[in-house]
């Protein structure tokens, strides 16, 4: 499989949207980036959406690898759709598209003044759009799935023993409000990893009494090009132990659960995603 350049990403995938003034063309403010016709030093004037590390660049000069075909002049203010590239003494980013700064106003309608919040909201919109179900409710109970119970009964390794073992648990969520999808029962089963391993630590962990909004995904199919399941590794098309016959969902990203206190905050994002 050939590598994909970030330059091939469409602007909507750009994580760093900012207005900047071109200070010097054919220049670099980071020793590791060779000066070329594609590079420019740009002062960051305003950040519209960004991850935390890039949101802090306001007022600073950074190195921009310009989008192909772009020919800004020194002194021009430009709206950059960019992604992070190198983080060293200073920052270098790769622009995937440059536009007139006036376009930012329409683009940011309804957004906040916090660029990290804006990026998180946009990512949550995408997450909701791709979710199979979004529900508000409460965890009524947490169970050990049958597959885990069987493993404890085995004398040797019942399945591959790895530091990345998810240590699955099942949360039964009693649904109060359905934002997306059509649950067939009043309760849905959410499979979650109790493991603290690096592979799973960001996944939300649930306890009886937890209330909030779940953005639920159906188990994914194997990746294209990947081999078949190895010995003993159960697929995630698993059956629920707590509610026989119920479909099992997962909530593996931090974006997939929002505690009750944040429910109002995410409501507008959910509405936006549903309308998109």
């Amino acid at each position: 499989m050939a590598g994909k350049t970030k330059a091939n990403q469409v602007p909507d995938e750009a994580k760093f949207l900012f207005k900047g003034t071109v200070r010097k063309l054919g220049a670099s403010a980071l020793a590791q980036v060779p000066k070329s016709e594609e590079t420019a030093i740009v002062r960051v004037d305003e950040v519209l959406h960004a991850p935390p590390a890039l949101a802090k660049t306001v007022g600073k000069e950074i190195t921009v690898k310009l989008a192909k075909g772009a020919k800004p002049k020194v002194g021009d203010q430009v709206l950059f759709h960019a992604n992070g590239w190198l983080f060293g003494k200073t920052v270098a980013v790769e622009s995937v598209k440059q536009e007139a700064p006036a376009l930012a106003k329409a683009m940011m309608a309804g957004r906040t003044a916090d660029p990290t919040r804006n990026l998180k909201d946009r990512e949550l919109e995408n997450r909701v759009a791709s979710a199979d179900m979004v529900v508000e409710g409460e965890v009524s109970s947490v169970h050990l799935p049958e597959s885990e119970m069987a493993a404890t009964r085995a004398a040797g390794p019942a399945r591959p023993v790895s530091e990345h073992d998810p240590k699955w648990r099942e949360a039964v969520v009693t649904v109060k409000t359905v934002h997306k999808g059509e649950p067939t029962t009043k309760q849905v089963v959410v499979r979650f990893p109790s493991s603290t391993d690096v592979q799973w630590h960001r996944a939300p962990k649930f306890h009886a009494g937890d209330r909030g909004v779940w953005v639920l995904q159906s188990p994914k199919a194997p990746a294209a090009g990947a081999a078949a399941q190895p010995k003993g590794a159960p697929t995630l098309a698993m059956t629920a132990t707590a509610i026989p016959g119920a479909a099992v969902y997962t909530a593996l990203s931090p974006m997939d659960f929002h505690p009750a206190g944040q429910a109002d905050t995410v409501a507008s994002v959910i509405r936006a995603a549903k309308n998109s």
């Binding site: 499989m1 994909k4 350049t5 790895s162 530091e163 990345h164 190895p230």
Partner: peptide, 18 residues
């Protein structure tokens, strides 16, 4: 290793650790 191009995938296989 300084390029912004994502590394090329030579092997892609499931069920492998460390």
């Amino acid at each position: 290793f300084l390029s912004s191009t994502t590394m090329t995938v030579l092997v892609d296989r499931m069920g492998v650790d460390q």
